[in-house]
Design a protein around this nucleic acid. Structure first.
Lengths: 225, 225
DNA sequence: TCAAAAGTGTTTCTGCTACACCCATGA
DNA sequence: TCATGGGTGTAGCAGAAACACTTTTGA
């Protein structure tokens, strides 16, 4: 069992000027085979648990991650030769961590931007791609954004999160109308302070429901052009 | 490993007057537990095969089915108590058989209309629902129809297939335009004979490609109303 | 010449994008 | 009063559904 855990966060490396980007949690292999390459976190299924409970347990124990707001099954990778040695089947998962939470991580694990992955172990690069594709699709037709966003947020902040996850520009104006029409987000009534450089204060929103739900089977958030 | 294999076929039971309906291939349990209930066909993974090859092999060996035009992974069912006795994890699949093919079946297996399932063993009823949901979704945004249709067909026949699989009325006129715009179907140039009761002969079409492909990420075949 | 089935033309609806314009705040 | 960022109004587009109308056949 392997999990691709995503979070939208500021790009690491000092200048926090840039927009936030989608990151994935990876763990660096200390031993051969493929020492030094980066892997998805995971582990083995216990005798008395189902798959999702097991993944939650692995992530809590091994990388001390407890803030998962969403977890779902992806594909099974079953090629007999996918890893050397004894035959291993990998069942993969998509996990999402809300934006402001910054869990403590062990020293050998790190958040990597999905647009710039390090050398990946085995078929884990493909797995990250699969997970990202699934996330992009579900942002369109479900309320899954709740699992990436803070509990309260300005629309521009939500726009940045969607934009990072989808990988293309998103118009805050239209995002608001799309999500309000489907009753996915609700105004809290309060407003944020305006920043140091002035500007109108932003109305705050929250997700109406923080349970995964298909909101519009046929909806689409299309890329510009 | 368990497979929900679908085919669009005439309703069994004499009067073939009715429209065709979506059927699923089931196998009746001869032994306890749950003797007499109906199961999805399947079996165990061999040491040197990946999951899809294994499912193909199982279906060929156990129910003599070789006409699968499409096969894909669905979810894993891993509840420790899903079946009594030793803990078993089920990996489920969606299989599709083209319409005119009518494979010979062993006596204990039978096609059942998905709208009227017999008493199902364990969690197999849920699995059929999952598979059907997946099929409905993919008919909208992929060319997966090729796996349910004959190689050549009139549009009204294709309409009946889509209608049976989607579970709602489909307009042949609009289906044509939707599928032609995406270059999913192509005119062969030939026409069918008109039926005994007259009527204009229908132009024949075929699927442009008989390999699974996402044709329009954001497409939708909506139910009427 | 009529019924049946196929195919075409056209209207309407809806969801979404794009973008111009107005509003509220800090310095 | 001006720059900055938030919010509203509105035009336009594209995919799809609905449906009236025309075409081609058998009896």
């Amino acid at each position: 069992m392997l999990a691709a855990v995503f979070q939208v966060r500021e790009l690491t490396g000092g200048s926090s000027a840039g927009k936030p980007a989608l990151h994935v949690l990876l763990w660096q292999r200390a031993l051969d085979p493929q020492r030094g390459r980066w892997s998805l976190p995971g582990g083995r299924l216990g005798a008395d648990e189902d798959l999702t409970s097991s993944v939650r347990r692995q992530l809590a124990e091994k990388v001390d991650l407890r803030e998962l707001a969403h977890l779902e099954q992806l594909a099974i990778f079953s090629d007999p030769k996918r890893v050397p040695g004894v035959r291993t089947i990998a069942s993969t998962f998509l996990g999402l961590v809300p934006s402001p939470a910054t869990p403590e991580l062990p020293p050998d694990t790190r958040w990597h931007p999905v647009s710039d992955l390090p050398p990946m172990a085995f078929d884990h690069g493909t797995m990250v791609e699969h997970a990202r594709t699934r996330l992009v699709a579900k942002l369109s037709y479900t309320n899954i954004g709740f699992a990436l966003a803070p509990t309260e947020f300005a629309l521009s902040a939500l726009r940045d999160i969607y934009s990072a996850a989808l990988g293309h520009h998103v118009d805050a104006t239209n995002l608001q109308r799309v999500l309000e029409r489907r009753h996915v987000i609700t105004r809290t009534g309060t407003t944020a302070r305006s920043g140091r450089s002035g500007g109108r204060p932003a109305a705050l929103y929250r997700f109406t429901e923080s349970r995964y739900r298909v909101t519009d089977e046929f909806a689409a958030l299309r890329p510009p052009g």
